[in-house]
Structure formats: structure tokens, C-alpha cells
Amino acid sequence: MDLKLEVVVLPVSDVDRAKAFYEKAGFRLDVDYVADDSYRVVHLTPPGSQCSILFGTGVT
């Protein structure tokens, strides 16, 4: 069995600030989805990586 780490969920206190930080660091924005005030998910991938990060509001 070949196991791979594909997504890491990160806790953040400020979604917009975290998104700006990772974009400035060169991460590619894959998804920024807002359902309502209680749910938002941001998904970014670093250059050359098959593992991405996910954070947001209402994400556990």
C-alpha cells in the first residue's frame, strides 16, 4: 500500500491574513469558497508539491 499525505488542515485565527501570507509565499490558490458567514474554506498548494493546505471558518 502506497500512502501519501495530500491535505493538511491548519487552524488559523484570520483567514484573509493567512491567505495573503501563503499567496505571497508562492502558494497557488485552488479554492476560496464562502457558503455563508459561518463557513469558508481556502485551499492552497505550494509550488511543485502534491500536498496542499486547507483552512477557513467552520472547518474542523
Rank of each mutant, 00 (worst) to 15 (best):
D30G: 05
D14I: 03
P46S: 09
A20V: 00
S52N: 13
T57L: 06
G56S: 05
G48Q: 08
D16E: 11
D2A: 12
H43F: 10
S13N: 12
Y22T: 00
D30A: 13
P47Q: 14
V34M: 10
G58I: 05
F21D: 10
G48W: 14
D14C: 03
T45F: 14
E23A: 00
T57H: 04
V41E: 08
S13Y: 13
G58Q: 12
Q50K: 15
R17E: 10
D36K: 08
L10M: 10
A35K: 12
A25K: 11
F55A: 03
V42G: 07
V15C: 08
V59I: 15
Y33A: 00
E23I: 10
E23P: 07
M1L: 11
A18F: 06
V9I: 10
S49R: 15
R40S: 03
Y22A: 05
V8M: 07
S49E: 15
V41I: 10
I53F: 13
L44Y: 01
S52A: 12
G26I: 04
D37V: 05
Y22Q: 03
S13A: 14
F21K: 08
Q50R: 15
V7L: 10
V7H: 08
G48R: 11
Y39M: 10
P47G: 15
R40V: 02
Y33S: 04
S52Q: 05
Y39D: 07
S38R: 10
D2N: 08
V8T: 03
D32W: 01
T60K: 15
F21Q: 12
A35D: 12
D37I: 03
L54Y: 12
Q50M: 14
F21Y: 13
G48E: 14
L3K: 02
